[in-house]
Design a protein around this nucleic acid. Structure first.
Lengths: 94, 94
DNA sequence: AAATTTGGTTTATAAAATAAACTAATTTAC
DNA sequence: GTAAATTAGTTTATTTTATAAACCAAATTT
């Protein structure tokens, strides 16, 4: 039987964010924005959701004088992503 | 760069329906309902969306005296599903 | 020093998923 | 034989979600 897909990950933008973060140690807001082509507002909202779920951590600092937001995936985020991928594979018949 | 995911397919229930229909020649409403664990209302709505997009065909008839709805995937449905799978693979790093 | 850009957040709106209510015919139980 | 329950759905309403628009503060450019 098909397993329920984690709704937090079954979202194009959030999935793209998590996918990106699995491949790098950390990433800046602006980098994620560029890579995903998301608007800043949408990205901000979705990052906050992922942070609330503890799938990522968000650290706010400064790069020179400009604000900088750095995101990292957590162990929870990685394992939920892996579970999601396994569940989704059945839908995709892979 | 990650490709945009077809929003009609990036939906848990619609994806499950299409996935199911790729594996069989045709399927009854009640069979799909059982397999997907969807409510009848939700299923009805999502099937209609897939029909409007010409991803599936819906034929209404009778099985004995009871109404029967039979669904089949179309060529469009199959090729859109295949495209969706290929695009999604990049998100999943497969 | 006014206008623009950068790096965001907050709030409002649009779209989608889901659930609830309803229809209509059919069985089943009394 | 008729009331209650079941089957097979559709339609409508509600909730949730995604997205866009508006906004803020500081920095930079003209």
């Amino acid at each position: 039987m098909l397993k329920k897909l984690n709704p937090l990950l079954h979202s194009e933008l959030r999935l793209a964010i998590i996918s990106l973060l699995t491949a790098v140690e950390k990433a800046e807001f602006t980098y994620i924005k560029e890579k995903t082509q998301a608007t800043a507002g949408n990205l901000s909202v979705q990052l906050t959701k992922l942070e609330n779920a503890k799938y990522i951590t968000i650290e706010k600092g400064f790069k020179g004088k400009m604000p900088q937001t750095i995101c990292k995936i957590t162990k929870t985020g990685i394992s939920e992503f892996e579970k999601y991928v396994e569940n989704l594979k059945e839908y995709l018949r892979l």
